[in-house]
């Protein structure tokens, strides 16, 4: 069985182990940092600006003399939090829109899906910037901006799943057996849709993290003194011109590694959820 699992899954096992280890350490670092390694976000040390990486400062210091490694941990914390909450917001909106369209069908479905198409036709980063510009800057604005621009794929997934389920003979059989709308919804439709919805949410987290970073990089995310990966990469631009490459390197590397790890683990989970693969795994 174990051999089968290893051979048939599309993702090699060591990649999963490494990715899981990366994610666990990132989450642990984010959760434990305020306890183990507190950071004064507004502190600067002008005597130690742009120090190259050393034992005292493993990732160097930036142009305000702040430890890059230390701030990266806090930046990651913000990115993961924003990514997770924004993905959740997007899932809720997408789940509701897709759920209504897929359950009611007909004209309601057509109208809702045209709205989805219209929003999808707008460049989502531009729309995100517009939303942030309308709100007071801060974490809430970033979360809303990412949430309100990323629900489209979830809505489409939920809708198409519901529409295809509605015509399946086992739904007919349930109706013929006397089941009402509520029972069919809770007993046959939701149990099939929820795993896909959960998968869509997790697939969205890396995307949301990148989006938050992009907004912060553009100076539209969190206030500049707060450590966030996007802010740090943005700040590092100035240092690059003076030859100091390290202030943007570590946050940049961290964002790439963590999102890759997240995508790897999610891809594995998606493989397992795919009924065809799952049937192969169980046989």
């Amino acid at each position: 069985m174990a051999e089968l699992t290893l051979r048939r899954s599309r993702m090699p096992r060591p990649a999963i182990t490494v990715a899981t280890a990366v994610l666990v350490s990132a989450a642990a670092a984010g959760l434990l940092a305020p306890v183990l390694w507190p950071l004064d976000q507004s502190a600067v040390d002008l005597a130690q600006t742009r120090l190259a990486p050393s034992w005292a400062h493993p990732a160097g210091t930036d142009d305000l003399g702040r430890d890059v490694a230390h701030r990266t941990v806090y930046g990651l914390r913000v990115s993961l939090l924003v990514g997770a909450v924004a993905a959740l917001v997007a899932t809720i909106i997408g789940g509701i829109v897709g759920g209504i369209a897929g359950t009611l069908g007909g004209p309601v479905d057509r109208i809702l899906m045209r709205i989805v198409d219209t929003v999808a036709a707008l460049p989502h980063l531009l729309l995100g910037i517009f939303i942030v510009a309308m709100l007071r800057p801060g974490l809430g604005a970033v979360v809303l901006s990412v949430g309100l621009t990323h629900w489209l794929s979830t809505a489409r997934i939920v809708r198409s799943e519901l529409l295809s389920l509605r015509t399946r003979p086992f739904i007919d059989a349930a109706i013929s057996g006397g089941a009402g709308r509520l029972r069919v919804l809770t007993r046959h439709l939701l149990p099939h849709v929820l795993p896909k919805l959960a998968l869509a949410t997790t697939l969205m987290v890396p995307h949301a993290v990148w989006h938050e970073t992009a907004l912060s990089f553009l100076g539209l995310g969190l206030p500049p003194h707060l450590a966030s990966l996007g802010n740090m990469i943005n700040d590092g631009q100035g240092s690059l011109l003076t030859g100091a490459w390290w202030p943007s390197l570590m946050p940049g590397l961290v964002i790439v590694i963590v999102t890759l790890a997240l995508a790897t683990v999610v891809a594995r989970w998606r493989d397992r959820l795919d009924p065809r693969v799952r049937a192969e795994l169980q046989l």
């Binding site: 399946r168 003979p169 086992f170 059989a173 109706i175 013929s176 057996g177 006397g178 709308r181 046959h188």
Partner: peptide, 23 residues
């Protein structure tokens, strides 16, 4: 759904594909 359950259940249905007809 708009037919009362008591009426619906007077008619049993057996579908062509048991795979598709079973959750």
């Amino acid at each position: 759904y708009t037919v009362p359950a008591a009426v619906r259940t007077r008619i049993g249905v057996l579908f062509q594909s048991p795979r598709a007809a079973a959750d």
